[in-house]
């Protein structure tokens, strides 16, 4: 059975999961910024369904509730759980982020379990896997244009990054998305992306000492230097 958590975001936001499924999904969220953001937006949407159902309660309810709270002790704030050592935590979150990205890349067609490294590697192009599992791999996901998602997993040691884009606006003919390495020197091209706005994972090299990753819209074939403002930028680790 598929446990691909990405497809459960809607059911989760509607409280349509069983307790076990809900807990499993919630354990997945912290390591997957894409899912966490989407889930939060869908949860706020479900809240609108609730607000639309608002009805004035009987007046007696107010007196009962206000009386009951005088007799009800408040729960203390939850304390943060004891964290693993920073090194272990970094490793874990990197692995979780990589697993999350893998799930996104495979589009849910293949159920990939977080601990199933072998399965994960098989599901991926080998080069992509090398970047994702690099010891210094760092994943960032950002949202743009409303529903678009761009994820960059970069490794300074390998001098490369894996980029995926989803739901960027489809560009008109003769235009393309172009990636750039920014700062501290002049922008350097990191290659072009599918102008339809959703692309398979792309490997790009020449990360160098760039501080920021950016995407612009350029004439088909790309430009030697950006000709307009970035559609989005992502700070690099």
């Amino acid at each position: 059975m598929s446990h691909d958590p990405h497809h459960l975001a809607g059911a989760y936001a509607l409280d349509a999961l069983t307790g076990t499924e809900r807990r499993r999904f919630e354990r997945h969220l912290p390591g997957c910024p894409t899912c966490a953001d989407e889930t939060s937006g869908l949860r706020e949407t479900a809240t609108r369904l609730a607000l639309a159902a608002a009805r004035r309660p009987p007046d007696a309810l107010r007196d009962r509730v206000l009386a009951e709270i005088t007799r009800t002790r408040q729960a203390p704030p939850p304390l943060p759980r004891r964290l693993p050592s920073p090194r272990a935590a970094r490793g874990l979150s990197r692995l979780a982020a990589a697993a999350c990205l893998v799930l996104a890349l495979t589009g849910g067609g293949i159920a990939v379990h977080l601990h199933d490294r072998a399965g994960r590697a098989q599901a991926l192009d080998r080069q992509v896997g090398v970047v994702l599992t690099a010891p210094d791999a760092h994943a960032s996901t950002i949202h743009a244009q409303g529903t678009a998602t761009v994820t960059v997993v970069s490794s300074r040691a390998l001098n490369r990054a894996v980029v995926t884009t989803a739901r960027l606006r489809r560009l008109p003919a003769a235009k393309t998305y172009q990636m750039w390495w920014l700062g501290p020197a002049a922008p350097r091209s990191a290659g072009t992306l599918d102008p339809r706005g959703t692309s398979k994972p792309v490997i790009t090299t020449g990360l160098g000492d760039a501080r920021t990753f950016g995407i612009t819209i350029e004439p088909t074939g790309g430009s030697p230097a950006p000709t307009g403002p970035p559609v989005l930028t992502i700070p690099l680790a």
């Binding site: 700062g183 920021t212 950016g214 950006p226 307009g228």
Partner: peptide, 24 residues
């Protein structure tokens, strides 16, 4: 706005400068 953006700002454009921060 950090120095990383300077290169973009020197290119004239009718569109407002969109960054992640602005959107947030």
């Amino acid at each position: 706005m950090g120095p990383d953006f300077v290169a973009f700002e020197t290119h004239p454009s009718g569109r407002p400068h969109r960054t992640v921060g602005v959107e947030t």
